[in-house]
Computed example of a mutant assay.
Amino acid sequence: MKAVVVHGANDLRVDEVPAPRPADDRVTVRIVYGGICGSDLHYAADGQNGPYRVREPLVLGHEVVGVVAESVAGAPKAGTPVAIHPATPCAAAGAAEPTGLHLRPGTYLGSASTEPHTQGGFAEILAVQPAQLRPLPAGLPLRRAVLAEPFSVALHGIRRLGERVRGARALVSGAGPIGALAVAALRHAGAAEIVAADLRSFPLKVAAAVGAGTTVNLAEGGEIEESAFDVVVEAAGAVASLGAAATAARPGGAVLQLGMLPSGPVPVAMSSVIAKELTVFGSQRFDVELDEAIALLAADESLETVVSHEFALDDAVAAFACAADSSRSSKTVLRVSADPQRKP
Rank of each mutant, 00 (worst) to 15 (best):
A123I: 04
K77Q: 09
L101E: 05
V59Q: 10
R55E: 15
G94A: 07
P76C: 02
L101G: 05
V72L: 13
E70R: 10
Y43A: 10
E97A: 09
Q129P: 07
Y43M: 09
R53Q: 15
L109D: 03
A95P: 14
P76M: 03
Q119K: 11
G120K: 07
E115A: 12
A83W: 02
E56N: 02
A44T: 00
E115K: 13
V72D: 13
L41R: 10
I125T: 14
L101D: 05
T118C: 15
S71N: 10
H117Y: 08
P116K: 05
V59F: 08
A92E: 06
L126W: 05
G79R: 02
L58F: 14
L136V: 02
I125Y: 08
L101T: 11
E124H: 14
L41D: 06
A93E: 15
L103F: 11
T114N: 12
P86N: 09
G50T: 06
H62E: 04
G106Q: 06
P98K: 03
T114A: 14
G61R: 06
A87L: 09
V67L: 07
P98H: 05
L103D: 08
S113D: 12
L126Y: 06
P105A: 08
A123M: 05
D40Q: 01
P76S: 01
G100A: 02
G61M: 05
S113M: 15
G66V: 03
T118F: 08
T99W: 08
A75N: 01
Y43N: 10
L136E: 02
T99R: 08
E124C: 13
Y108M: 13
D40I: 00
A93V: 15
R53I: 15
A127F: 08
A44P: 00
V82M: 04
A45D: 13
R55P: 08
P98A: 11
P98R: 04
P57M: 12
V54H: 06
Y52G: 04
A75D: 05
L41K: 09
E56F: 00
V64L: 01
A45F: 10
G66P: 00
R53N: 11
R53S: 14
L136F: 05
G66I: 04
A131K: 14
T88R: 03
A78D: 11
G74I: 14
I84S: 01
A127W: 10
A75H: 03
A93P: 07
P135A: 14
P86E: 08
R53T: 15
R53A: 15
T107F: 08
L126H: 10
A69T: 04
L58W: 14
Q119S: 09
V68T: 04
S71R: 09
H42T: 00
P86L: 05
S71F: 11
T99P: 00
Q119H: 13
Q119L: 12
P57R: 11
Q129C: 09
Y52A: 15
P135L: 12
A92P: 11
